[in-house]
Design a protein around this nucleic acid. Sequence first.
DNA 1: TAGGATGCTGAACGTGCGTTCAACACCGAC
DNA 2: GTCGGTGTTGAACGCACGTTCAGCATCCTA
Lengths: 232, 232
Amino acid sequence: MRSTPTGPERSADDLTARARIRDAAVRRFATDGLAAPLRTIAADAGVSPGLILHHFGSRDGLRDECDQFVLDEMFRADDELLRDSGASTAAAWLAGLGQHSAMVGYMLRLLQHGGPVLTAFVDRMVAATVDYLEAGVADGSIRPSLAPRARARYIVESSLGALLLRMPAARDRLDLDALADVLQAYTEEVTVPTLELYTEGLLVDRSLLEAFAANLPGESPGTEPEQEGHHT
Amino acid sequence: MRSTPTGPERSADDLTARARIRDAAVRRFATDGLAAPLRTIAADAGVSPGLILHHFGSRDGLRDECDQFVLDEMFRADDELLRDSGASTAAAWLAGLGQHSAMVGYMLRLLQHGGPVLTAFVDRMVAATVDYLEAGVADGSIRPSLAPRARARYIVESSLGALLLRMPAARDRLDLDALADVLQAYTEEVTVPTLELYTEGLLVDRSLLEAFAANLPGESPGTEPEQEGHHT
DNA sequence: TAGGATGCTGAACGTGCGTTCAACACCGAC
DNA sequence: GTCGGTGTTGAACGCACGTTCAGCATCCTA
């Protein structure tokens, strides 16, 4: 029931009621939060509430489909952007917004809500960042780290977390039309502090770092003896 | 109805049903999320559902009281810790947890939920961080910044946001008993990446920063011509 | 001892939700 | 032309929730 619409050749144009429901759901979940009523989504899609459950089985079924759809689309767009531009992951991520505001909003709701889907997403971003940083270390543009994976995770979680926290006033109801501008303004505001911190650091004295580094289990920079995963 | 319990001299021992309800609510909101049913809270407090509304008027009234109570307590404890130890704000913040796990959990829920209360909290933390960094710049331990307020906000939002994002697996139901250990493990894990980043930065080349700094409106480090506030 | 305020109860009401279901419309196959 | 299936509807069910309310208990005051 999931993979292919039962109608003949309908899956091509992607304008089936099923797709309309899915799109309406993504948009409504983004604006109103992941607890948005199915009746509202049905009204948005111009469809009866019963049809949603006919197609997706249950509310959770619809959520699962939205999760999968948004993540797939995001990673597809992300890969394209990453292939085309040599910019940093976060910058490339925030660049291609124009059309995808509903999906970006849905991603923010996922960040807010948590759960296994988010965990998997963060892990994937961490893995990509590890590779990206490793390449930077290799070509001499990025400093090596005592704990490359922990550093990548820290950077990813800081960036995404800060992004999520910046939406507090608008979290009750996300305005998708204004989202692109808001994110643009946000990136401009954090550019200087980020570059400052990433270029010069914050502390003048190296003693704190060296004190902690001395107590570290022997790890050569660039390799990763530390085990990753969520210790939650 | 808010400020003083109507009973004579009852406010001293803080063991009134009203206080028991408030404590149970904070704990239940922390574990189950801010949408936890009033009936559950009533059962936790050993009290009938009607009594909650007798004391707090409505669900929102209870939420308001919890917000105010938790924030007051947190800032009180924070001020104490900050006065005693010279440690960084984040470190001191995460140090005194033993008893206050319910309030810390409630704060995490506030971070997750957003809203004006969270905005005010973040603003207050940013202001404190501005002062802290300014003092560090003055005594030479912290590098000056082109945009001190934006830097402080970035640091606060990164730290809090990363903290929030690290709870994803447990966000459905927070285990308050394990919270202290989880946060302890988290701080240990991020200590090295944080110190590394704060001491050495990430980028080898200064050209990116200098390119952006050149386009900046003339601002002398240490002062703040940039206007603050939320552009959301 | 009477009386009234205060703390508190538990049943009940109304609402909004996810979900179920019987029925209808359309459409290609025989 | 009939028939089965797929897409779709909208009314209805059951449930959980916030909230209301009439009444009871307890204790201070007079």
